[in-house]
Design a protein around this nucleic acid. Structure first.
Length: 413
RNA sequence: GCCCGGUUGGGGUAGCCUGGCAUCCUGUGGGACUGUGGAUCCCUAGACUCGAGUUCAAAUCUCGGACCGGGCCCCA
């Protein structure tokens, strides 16, 4: 027996139906906001990802040399490919360019609950428009998707990368030191962070002020603690989200994200039902285009962890509609089989989901099977009715049965 | 990559400590029942994660690998 590779999954039909159903809801919501779908290759040049995330990501991705000697990687995320696509081919589209995508990504990590080596991401990018109104639009989309798929409990946390960066640099930290300090602050490792800030030459007052802001979480009032553009920006975003009816929004100035390409607002969404691994969405405003050889362009985007979001829905008791089939055709005798094919062909060409007995089962076994596949109607093709040009149509739920003319059978559906 | 726990028919399980015919439920196929389902009964098929070791004998004990899960690292 061949096992599937570590961290991958097979999906049963009922799971696939659920996944497709939820994908469809996500796409619908994105379309409602005027975002349009794109798709990029499953593999890319490795350089795309090292440019974005640094050389160390190679340890975490499926990177290999192809037969032509090219350095190739299975994509570990979708923002970099989307921005590459933009720089290569879409840079003269009207702004803002609003795109979304859904697809699988691959990371060489240790799998855990809700974490796989092949996983699915839904994401959206708004390119070429900066400002609170754009950020708010993108966050609204992410939140609206969660609402549309029926996730009951989720939280939105919004921060601003500029707040801590500005405090750090105005307190005397050099550009080299800042990313590492932010990384420690993001993980709430305050002792480590303090040590780094101290060795970067910051005063004790500055350090405690910075840690205080990092811990600042709450409603819009907490913005009183800070000054300047970030404050204005976040207030406006908060206000716009209020118009959409999203009250589950917190300001969390400790949401920092260590990477350089974030330029302002950053946000995360959590599903508390997931416990420790609760983050289901992350995003922010950034600029990557110049890294990929384009003009500097401000964008805002997010990625939703599709698998983890589904896990959250499951934990909340979400149920997908049960699989149903409209018609199940039962030939009573072998002589009636040919007639059954004709009826099946007729029903299917009219868009009615139809199955027929392929196992040569007895009438009573066929009824059992029809029940087990959740067939709504059974069509019994028997000699007696057929002699009159008719078949029996049985409602599998009520048990009511009537004789109808074969050429009027569509009226039963 | 590191530490810890787990893995028994398709799904769910008992047995493991204390080595000796692998249990039960459900599901699959068939029959009772060749013109009427969901019930019941019967039959059939179907598993010890893999490899090595110890032993007369290994699902059971030992070691190693794979996979799953909890924690660490990472989480773009």
């Amino acid at each position: 027996m061949i096992q599937k590779p570590r961290g991958t999954r097979d999906f049963r039909s009922d799971e696939m139906e659920k996944r497709r159903y939820l994908e469809k809801l996500m796409r619908e919501e994105a379309a409602l906001f005027g975002f349009r779908e794109i798709a990029t290759p499953i593999f890319e040049n490795t350089e795309l990802f090292t440019l974005k995330s640094g050389p160390n990501v190679i340890d975490e991705i499926y990177a290999f040399t192809d037969k032509g000697g090219r350095e190739i990687s299975l994509r570990p995320e979708l923002t970099a490919p989307a921005m590459r696509f933009f720089v290569n081919e879409l840079s003269s589209e009207p702004r803002p360019l609003k795109m979304f995508y859904f697809g699988q990504c691959f990371r060489y990590e240790r799998p855990q609950s809700g974490r796989y080596r092949e996983f699915f991401q839904f994401g959206a990018e708004m390119i070429g428009s900066a400002g609170p109104q754009s950020d708010a639009e993108v966050i609204s989309l992410a939140a609206s998707i969660m609402k549309h798929i029926g996730l009951k409990d989720y939280r939105i946390r919004i921060g601003h990368i500029g707040v801590l960066r500005e405090m750090l640099s105005s307190s005397g930290a050099s550009a080299d030191n800042i990313p590492l300090i932010l990384q420690k602050l993001d993980k709430k490792e305050y002792e480590e962070a303090s040590q780094r800030m101290k060795s970067a030459g910051l005063s004790d007052e500055s350090i405690s002020a910075i840690i205080d802001v990092t811990e600042t979480v709450g409603s819009v009032e907490v913005l009183e603690k800070i000054e300047g553009d970030a404050k204005e920006h976040l207030s406006k975003v908060f206000q716009i989200l209020g118009y959409y009816g999203f009250n589950n929004v917190e300001i969390d100035l400790g949401v920092v994200r260590g990477l350089d390409y974030y330029t302002g607002l950053v946000f995360e969404m959590d599903a508390p039902v997931l416990g420790a691994e609760k983050q289901i969405c992350g995003g922010g405003s950034y600029s990557l285009t110049e890294l990929f050889g384009g003009e500097k362009t401000f964008s805002t985007g997010f990625g939703i962890g599709f698998d983890r979001t589904l896990l959250a829905l499951d934990r909340e008791g979400f149920e997908t509609p049960k699989y149903e089939i409209s018609a199940y055709i039962i030939p009573v005798t072998d002589a009636m089989k040919d007639e059954s094919y004709k009826i099946a062909a007729n029903l299917r060409s009219s868009g009615i989901t139809t199955e027929l007995d392929l196992m040569g089962r007895s009438l009573s076994k066929n009824f059992k099977y029809a029940s087990s596949i959740n067939a709504k109607k059974a069509i019994i093709v028997g000699e007696k009715e057929f002699a009159e040009g008719c078949v029996s149509v049985r409602d599998m739920q009520s048990g009511e049965q009537k004789v109808v003319k074969i050429n009027e059978i569509l009226q039963e559906f």
